[in-house]
């Protein structure tokens, strides 16, 4: 470009994308420190300096929680459709395609059978990178199938949640996934099986107002944004100044929603211990116990 022609005296170093898959260096939003990606990955995606928990992709999360080679994915063939023919600034179909290309998988959740320590569980892992892990028909269906099949196979369910809410592009089909998934949780609970949720940054709106809130035990990663409405919406609607730490894991622990805030380094051990204490020795007897409200 001639306009900037004079600048050509400075050399530009271009790093080819495949040399630097996710950026070699990452800036920590917590302490603004520059972190070496490889070191960050070795530290489970947690800043060594300030403890900020970076969001995890599904593969990383599964690798951190499940025993090596012990994750068998279910319902990987489900694909989102465009039931409303939704067109806004871009079509829903083109958004799905671009996210699938960028992320390397077709929708926002991976579900399957996993082994966590000695426990066989149904494991669901949401991935915020795919359209904000919004819940459309595919996410709802996969969650429902995971919970139903785990009920049938008498397994507890561990659900790692992250989501911006319902997927607007599927309209009311999305909203109804809230009911569908909550119904599946009810049946799993009636069968006397534990359902554990792990809330990660961020877990909000339609997902929080359905299966994410319904854990028999609700764990949260430190500093995760958790709530119904987003902070911006609340500020705009009410014109109120939001309290310090509002809607963060620690705030919700203090306000009685969350059972414990667990750093990522202890998450797997905590889940193993919880499962050991909660998975009934005799499921038939536990199933006969009256369902608690």
């Amino acid at each position: 470009m001639t306009l900037f022609g004079k600048r050509s005296q400075y050399s530009t170093v271009r790093v080819r994308k495949r040399d630097m898959p996710d950026g070699l260096w990452v800036k920590c939003p917590g302490c603004s420190d520059i972190l070496y990606r490889q070191e960050l990955d070795e530290a489970l995606g947690v800043c060594r300096k300030c403890g900020h928990h970076f969001p995890l992709g599904r593969a990383e999360r599964i690798a951190q929680l499940a025993e090596a080679g012990a994750f068998e994915e279910w319902d990987a063939g489900l694909r989102s459709m465009d039931p409303l023919g939704f067109t806004g600034t871009a079509s829903y179909t083109s958004k799905l395609e671009s996210h699938a290309r960028r992320c390397g998988y077709p929708d926002a959740i991976a579900c399957g059978r996993a082994r966590i320590g000695p426990h066989a569980v149904g494991l669901g892992v949401m991935d915020f990178r795919f359209l904000g892990a919004s819940m459309g028909s595919v996410v709802g269906e996969k969650v429902a199938r995971l919970i139903e099949r785990s009920t049938a196979e008498r397994m507890p369910v561990v659900m790692c949640c992250a989501s911006g809410g319902a997927r607007m592009y599927e309209g009311m089909f999305s909203l109804m996934q809230m009911a569908k998934t909550s119904g599946a949780v009810a049946r799993h609970g009636d069968a006397g099986l534990p359902y554990l949720t792990v809330l990660t940054d961020p877990t909000t709106a339609g997902v929080m107002a359905s299966f994410a809130s319904l854990g028999d035990v609700i764990l949260a990663e430190p500093g995760a944004l958790i709530g119904f409405a987003g902070p911006r919406v609340i500020r705009e609607t009410t014109q109120q100044e939001l309290p310090q730490g509002f809607q963060r894991s620690e705030f919700l622990l203090e306000h009685g929603l969350i059972d414990c805030v667990v750093p990522r380094s202890r998450l797997k051990a905590t889940l193993v211990e919880l499962l050991t204490c909660l998975v009934p020795d005799n499921p038939a007897r536990a199933g006969a116990a009256p369902a608690a409200g």
Binding site: S213, I234, T237, H255
Partner: peptide, 19 residues
């Protein structure tokens, strides 16, 4: 969508009703 609503867990209240 307000502070008190979140402090008393509006999302959980709705989720429990659904279930």
């Amino acid at each position: 969508p307000g502070i008190e609503s979140e402090e008393r867990h509006i999302a959980e209240a709705i989720a429990v009703n659904l279930r």
